[in-house]
Simulated scan of single mutants.
Amino acid sequence: MINLNPETLVSAIICVNFFSIGLYTFLIRQNRSKTASLFLLSFCISLGLNQLYDLLVFNGVYGNYFRFLDEFSLLIAFSSLYFYIASLTQNLFRFQKKHIVHLIPILIFLLIWVFPLPIIEQYHNISFLRILYKYYNNIQGIIYVFLINGLVNQHQQILKDLTSTARENDLNWVRIMVILLLIVIVFWTLSGFEKDWLNLTGYSLLIFSYWLGYHIIAQKGIYRSMLPELEVAELKQREKRYKNSTLSVLEKSEMVEHVKHLMETEKPYLNNELTLTSLADRLQMKPIHLSQVLNEEFKENFYSFINRYRVNESKKMLLESRYSHYNILGIALESGFNSKTTFNKAFKENTGISPSEFQRTSTRAS
């Protein structure tokens, strides 16, 4: 007879949620690529199987094979989530030899189950191994949380070589997902010491499943419209910056003058959607060459370079009488920024003070 207590119902709902998210993504959505969809399917099915194990336990069904299902599914889940985020944030993502390291924990786990080692069989006599074995998946989960956060930070840094507009909001759903997952892992770890935490683990995972489902359906993919720019940045990384560049010193010097002339005469930075590729097209340069000139000759990435010009333009506007009726947001938009927050941050980074302070001190000085 099925045990219909709250824990059973929560596990059943979570199980259905994850199976549904995975199948929906793979069969219908296929967000940005089949590769990303496969990894998300693997993540969701793995967590669904993990909750299926809990359902079996709550209903008195035990056995080594079911225990294997519980532990192995979590090993697959964390690595699958990592590769899902990697395939979303890296346009040229391919599974490479360096990624084999993520399979090592899985292989070790399989070897232990198929060929149990005496030291593992007696792990309960060794405190360190007891803790390691009991919290192996918890430790792995925390490690992957930090690895995923690293992918997001790396992607954000790459974008500063590509675009002049801050787009942090496009990655907020990934950052929040990482935080929610970390909360689930913390509750899960605490439940190993005190069983009362087990309920919080279930409820937090339930919230996580609904939150993930909503954002997987709602999110449009990361920077789908910026695929050419992403390819430039990722190719640049693979080439280890500009090691294989054929640009001579003279060519770079000419490009510097060309860039300066265009920036001062045509003011392309006033376009708040300006990207590396679009500016390179106007300069009749290859994007990779423009990126090299900015980084090596101007000592700035694209984001900093463009925003420096925008800040200088805004400083003029703040002091000109014809812009006196503009508020700070109006000045920000007129000078090429797309938000007041981004404007204030860039202005302070370039001048050391806020736009309002600059306007006040300059007015008093005059």
Rank of each mutant, 00 (worst) to 15 (best):
I13K: 01
F19T: 12
S33Y: 13
S33F: 12
T35E: 15
L47C: 05
N50C: 10
F58G: 06
E71H: 14
I76A: 12
F78I: 07
Y82H: 04
F83I: 11
A86R: 14
Q96Y: 12
I100D: 11
L111S: 11
I112N: 07
V114C: 07
P116F: 02
P116K: 03
L117G: 04
I119K: 03
I120F: 14
Q122A: 15
H124M: 14
N125D: 11
N125Y: 11
F146T: 04
I148L: 08
Q154I: 10
Q154A: 09
H155S: 12
Q157E: 15
L162V: 05
E168S: 09
D170Q: 10
W173R: 02
R175H: 02
I179V: 09
I179F: 12
I185M: 00
K195D: 13
L198G: 01
L198N: 11
Y203H: 02
L205I: 04
Y214F: 07
I217K: 13
Y223Q: 10
S225T: 10
L227W: 09
E231Q: 07
L235N: 15
R238V: 04
E239W: 13
E251P: 08
S253I: 03
L262W: 07
L262G: 01
K267R: 06
N271T: 00
L274M: 02
L274I: 09
L274E: 03
T277S: 06
T277C: 05
S278H: 05
L279D: 00
A280Q: 02
A280W: 04
D281G: 06
R282H: 08
L283E: 05
L290W: 03
L290S: 02
Q292T: 01
V293G: 00
E297Y: 03
N301R: 03
R308P: 01
K316R: 07
N327E: 07
L333G: 03
L333F: 06
G336P: 02
G336R: 04
T341F: 05
T342C: 06
F343H: 03
N344F: 05
N344P: 03
K345H: 11
A346W: 05
F347P: 11
K348D: 04
G352Q: 04
I353W: 10
T361P: 00
A365I: 14
A365E: 14
A365M: 13
S366C: 12
S366F: 15
